[in-house]
Structures are given as C-alpha cells and as structure tokens.
C-alpha cells in the first residue's frame, strides 16, 4: 500500500519538472538582456549583422513558442543544449560542477546535524542553564549574519591569522584527483590516498561550516523547542516516573519524536543549502553549479540557466520526497 503511494508521489514529480522547465524557459527570457550583445564584449568592432547571424545560430531569432517547443523536445531526448558562452554541452558543464556542489551541500548538512542536534538536545535538557543561553545566543549569530560575512571572517581567522585552513578551492593548487564519484573526500578514500583525503577534507571544512551554520542554528532551535515540548508530555513523565534513566528517556523516547519537526526543517533547508551555495561558492572559489548559474544568468546564457535550474528543482523535489517518506516512517499516523 505504502509502496504504491511512494510510486504515486514519484510520478507526481513529472508534471512539476515539466512545469519548472516551462517556467524557467519563459522566466529567463522575460528578464531583460541580450545574450549575443553580452557575448560580443567591447573592444574591437562588431556590426549589427554579425550579431543577427549569431542570434540565428542560437535559434534566438525564432518566435518564443517555437523556441519553447524546440527546447522541450530537445530536453525530452536528454539534450540540454549548448552553452552560448562556452560552446560546451550543458550536460557536460553540469556533470562537471555538480559533484562539487553536492560535496559542499552534504558537508554543510553533516556539519549542521552534528552541531545542531546535540546542541538542541543539551539546551533542552538543561533548559535555562548557561549552556542553553550561550548556545541559543550563538545560534542567532549563525542566523543573523549572511553567508559571505561568516565566510570572509572565517577566512580571516582560520586562514590568514591562524593559517589552519586554506582560503579557497577544493584541493591545494596543482593537486588533482581521479574522478570516481566526483566528491573528492570520498574519491580519495576509495583510492586509498590518505594524503589527498586530508587535503580535500581540509578544504571542505570552512565552506561547509559557513554554509551549514545557519542550518545548524535552525536545527538547534527547532530541536530544543520540540524536545522541551516532548519532555513535558505525559508518556515521558511516565517513563521518568517509572525510574528509567535520564539517558534512556531522552534517547529512546524523546529524541525520536523530537526528530520529526527537525527532519521537516532539514528538508526545507535543502533549498537554503542549494540556494545559499551560490554565495558560498563565490567566496571560497568553489567550482560548483551555484557559481556557474549566477555567472550564466548575468551573461544570459539561457541553456545553462535552464539546465541548472531544472537540476536544482529535481534535487529539491527528490529531497522533499525523501523527507515525506521519512515523515511517515517517524509518524505512521500521517498519510503521504
């Protein structure tokens, strides 16, 4: 029964993806700007006729509905077109940049959960204690400063002053790694190269912490708030009254239930992790999709923007689906 529901949900993502494809196609063309004019740069001499010829080569001279039709049929065949700017297939560009983005997002997620959950639980258990106060106040700094500020301050402290962590990139300059998954931290382990692992891990720490800080704060807040609520529930009191150890009460009874809203938050924050990475990738010179998409939207490189947004959307939809499924697992009373 549940399997069918899950399948239904997966099928329901198809119209969303088509919707996204159409919306982004129209949206990006509604934004003022001429990709060909931008491509031609400044110095030298280019005439209107040459630009017209270039437009023709990109199909930009055709009516919008024809372009849309071409785009949709092309996309259905799995072809996302070619970047105006780099004359490389969009699929290649995305496959090149996606692993970096995933690595960063996962790193941030791990950081957020590792920091957020324990802080939230401890704060709730020791409500109103100094630990609680300090960590909650800290969480507001995490939320109230934008990514780029945290990032630059992090670089100033940990890279320039203490020289513990590198300022930018995924590996030390000149090092390279054989691509297996494209996630350097994992690839280096698969290759059994501990030095590369350490190097890539080193580079990952600061960007992940920057990107994950706000989410960690969010998780801590929600975790604390729902833990507090659950610790007041009758069944927890009963468990306490029965003389179960505090550890067992918290881990066995409270934690699982308090995780429900946390999972929702994490699910909702996938968007932040994916969207926020544009800024973090720029600050840390991290060669991911986010930076590429911002550059492409500024250059009005339509095919790249379309492809990348569809990818974002797809990832997001899938993440949500997983959250929904987890949700029903954690609380069987809810229908999908």
């Amino acid at each position: 029964m549940r399997g069918i529901k899950v399948l239904e949900r997966i099928l329901a993502t198809i119209p969303i993806m088509v919707g996204i494809a159409v919306i982004i196609f129209i949206f990006i063309r509604a934004v003022p700007g001429d990709p060909v004019d931008l491509m031609m740069g400044e110095g030298g001499y280019v005439s209107e006729e040459e630009m017209e010829a270039m437009r023709k080569a990109f199909n930009l001279d055709k009516p919008v509905h024809v372009q849309l039709y071409l785009f949709l049929t092309q996309t259905l065949r799995g072809d996302l077109g070619e970047s105006f700017l780099k004359q490389v297939p969009v699929t290649d560009l995305i496959l090149d940049t996606l692993p970096a983005t995933i690595e960063l997002a996962l790193g941030a997620l791990v950081f957020a959960v590792l920091v957020g959950v324990p802080v939230g639980v401890i704060s709730a258990v020791k409500q109103n204690s100094l630990v609680d106060r300090v960590s909650m106040a800290g969480s507001f700094v995490g939320i109230s400063f934008p990514h780029f500020w945290l990032g630059i301050i992090g670089i100033l402290i940990f890279s320039v002053t203490l020289q513990w962590l590198p300022t930018n990139g995924r590996l030390d300059s000149g090092l390279s790694i054989e691509h297996i998954t494209g996630l350097y931290v994992i690839d280096s382990l698969l290759l059994g190269d501990l030095e590369l692992f350490w190097n890539s891990f080193h580079h990952l720490i600061l960007p992940s912490a920057t990107l994950g800080a706000a989410v960690a704060a969010m998780i801590a807040r929600v975790m604390r708030s729902s833990m507090l609520e659950i610790l007041r529930q009758d069944y927890v009191m009963l468990a306490r009254a029965k003389g179960l150890s505090e550890y067992r009460v918290i881990v066995r009874h409270a934690l699982r239930n308090a995780l429900i809203p946390t999972v929702t938050v994490v699910g909702l924050q996938t968007g932040v992790l994916l969207g926020g990475n544009m800024v973090v990738e720029t600050v840390f010179g991290w060669p991911g999709v986010g930076r590429m998409v911002v550059q492409s939207i500024y250059a009005r490189d339509y095919p790249v923007v379309q492809g990348a947004v569809m990818l974002y959307a797809f990832t997001f939809v899938i993440a949500n689906l997983i959250v929904d499924i987890l949700y029903t697992y954690l609380n069987p009373k809810i229908e999908l």
Partner: peptide
Amino acid sequence: KRAIFKMVPEPATRIAGLKAGE
C-alpha cells in the same frame, strides 16, 4: 616549471590567499 591559474572571484578571498601565501 609549473603555472597554475586559479579562479578566485571574491576580492577578499584573493587578497587573503595572497596574504596566506597560497
């Protein structure tokens, strides 16, 4: 012997990279 061009779009990061010797 070797020349490496690294893309570092954010000015503050470029300066930090120079100061840190990277």
